[in-house]
Simulated scan of single mutants.
Amino acid sequence: MAVVIGAGDVEIDLPRLAAELTEALRAGPAGPGQRVRVPVTEDVTAMVLVPGLAPGIPAYTVKVHAKNPNRSPAITGVICLHDLATGDLLALIDSAGLTAVRTGLGGALGAHVLARADARHVTVIGAGVQGRAQLEALAALRPIGSVSVRDTNPAAEAEFVAWAERLGLTTSGDAGEIVLTATWSREPVLHRVAPGTHVTSLGADEPGKAELAPELLAGALVVVDDPALAHVTADTTIGAVLRGEHPGRTSEDQVTVYSPAGLPMQDLVIAWHVYRNAIRKSPAVFDLGSGM
């Protein structure tokens, strides 16, 4: 029996999902991270991520979506969740919301693991959906003392500040000990940071995008989720840090960078989380019929 889970039907327990995603990253993917990326027009990129596999989850995902930074939402598409044993379709899930959660939570987990334990002040560069998703996820993982935001659009900055204050966060203009960048930039937006800063950058997930200057990367410990998918030269992976195979941050003054590409395995962990929540509340989903 397959179900459709729209954006309004998605139910997420963020602390529980963070624990599930951390465990999956520690274990490592059950298969290779594969993706097909095809430019469709000057603005639109179509992408297929297949397959999403993770130890202990009896399902796999295939995601088909499009990216268009000139639209809102910038990402649209669908995640197909299949039974691992039979290949039967279990669910069709709107990919925009899940991708935002996956990317935001994945970036925030990297920040939480690599930042100094006492880091409480956050700067967000990019006041869009992904900047909000990262900050909200990070606030679920550690206390946030204050947050500042930078964006080329003053109205977006003001809306972000109002949203953060509704979450109960204090806003300020101070530079953060944790910097979360979430832009579509193809030119560096961050050239230098203070010693001890952690930076999570989401902008190097495809060729041509670059949020961080080469000199910043050259002086930092650079961590990725999958070297084969990354578009930066990395020192190690977040899985290796979580497993204790790499120490991660080694000093209070060290600059650390987490630059995830986003793994199909992470799509599966989140899709399975959402699917289990949805089938416990059957009125919130729609039966497509056993013929599927």
Rank of each mutant, 00 (worst) to 15 (best):
E20Q: 09
S148P: 08
A59K: 03
L217I: 11
W272Y: 07
G52K: 08
E165Q: 15
T61W: 06
T76M: 14
G31K: 08
P69Q: 05
N70K: 15
F286R: 15
D83A: 10
Y60A: 04
V124E: 04
G106H: 08
Q130K: 07
E165V: 09
L242E: 00
E252Y: 15
M1W: 02
E159N: 13
L216N: 08
A91T: 04
A111N: 01
A46S: 12
K67A: 08
A115G: 05
L53R: 13
I270H: 00
L17A: 02
M265W: 02
V64R: 06
E187V: 15
T170N: 10
G289Q: 10
D43Y: 05
L89E: 02
V193Y: 08
G248P: 03
V232Q: 12
G106N: 13
P247R: 08
V10Q: 14
P73K: 01
Y60L: 12
E177H: 09
Y258N: 02
L92S: 06
S259H: 07
R142G: 03
R280N: 14
H112V: 01
R192V: 14
S201N: 13
P15W: 10
G128W: 02
R16T: 12
K281N: 15
G28E: 02
N70H: 15
T236V: 10
V161S: 11
L141Q: 05
P207L: 13
A158I: 00
M292I: 14
L229V: 07
V78C: 10
K281C: 09
K281L: 12
K281R: 15
A139K: 07
